Computed example of a mutant assay.
Amino acid sequence: MKTDNQLQHDVMAELEWDPRVDHADIGVAVNEGVVTLTGYVKSYPEKMAAERAARRVAGVKAIAEEIKVRFASDPKTADHEIAKRILDLFAWHVSIPQDRVKLTVERGWVTLTGDVDWFYQKEEAAKSAGRITGVLGISNLIEVKKLPVAADVKERIMAAFRRQANLDASSVTVVTEGSTVRLGGMVKAWNERGVAERAAWAAPGVNKVEDDIIVAF
């Protein structure tokens, strides 16, 4: 008696062998001899051919056929097509280190993993993936590896303040703990607090900013 793994292998081989079936977009799952076919084909006859191919395999007890017919003009939203389009987009994006960002797609849901040096790279990867047709959601599990240095964060805040008139960063305090930056102290206006927070996010390795700066009117 065949195991489910053996049966899955045989069904996939039969689909690949049948010239009437383009097996690239067809998924095969087996549970106690019951075969589930999923994915896309280009026509109804191809759909029927795929089902007949699966039935020919010895050991198949039943078939749950969930294949959809998708015409050439329809959007390409199969999981492997979504993954390919995201990877192509990453390859053209200078802000995303494609060799360090990995992805998986399951039923339209994208999971991003890997590591980067900057928080904006993590954000940009998720934004770019979200632009692809067929993406239903994103789990951004990319880690920001390089740890922030308090002096570096403080300098970025002061540099951001210097670029704008009448802003003083001397009263802003910066404490780092791992990849978390805590901002404290006092500023004169809400926009100064916003400038400080954005500057902190721009530092390498920052995964979280806790803004406790007080605005003194």
Rank of each mutant, 00 (worst) to 15 (best):
D4A: 03
L7F: 07
Q8I: 10
E16W: 12
H23L: 06
A24Q: 11
I26F: 05
G27T: 08
V28M: 04
V28I: 07
A29E: 14
V30K: 04
V30L: 06
E32C: 07
V34P: 04
T36N: 05
T36K: 11
A50D: 05
A50E: 01
E51G: 04
E51M: 09
V60C: 09
V60R: 11
K61Y: 06
I67T: 01
V69S: 05
F71P: 00
A72L: 13
S73K: 15
K76V: 00
A78C: 09
D79N: 02
H80L: 04
K84H: 12
D88P: 00
L89E: 14
F90P: 03
A91C: 07
S95V: 08
P97E: 09
Q98K: 10
D99H: 12
D99M: 10
D99T: 14
V101G: 05
K102R: 13
L103I: 02
L103Q: 00
E106I: 14
G108V: 01
T111W: 06
T113D: 10
D115W: 10
D115F: 09
Y120E: 06
A126Y: 08
K127I: 09
S128Q: 14
A129T: 01
G134C: 03
I138T: 02
S139M: 11
S139E: 15
L141V: 00
L141E: 11
I142N: 02
V153A: 08
E155I: 04
R156H: 03
A160I: 01
F161G: 02
F161D: 05
Q164V: 10
S171V: 00
T176F: 10
G178F: 07
G178I: 03
S179M: 00
T180P: 05
R182V: 11
L183Q: 03
M186F: 08
V187Q: 06
W190G: 08
E192W: 12
E192S: 12
R193S: 15
A196K: 01
A196H: 03
A196R: 01
E197Y: 02
R198S: 15
A199V: 02
A199L: 05
A200Y: 00
A203M: 06
V206P: 03
K208T: 08
A216C: 13
A216E: 12
F217M: 12
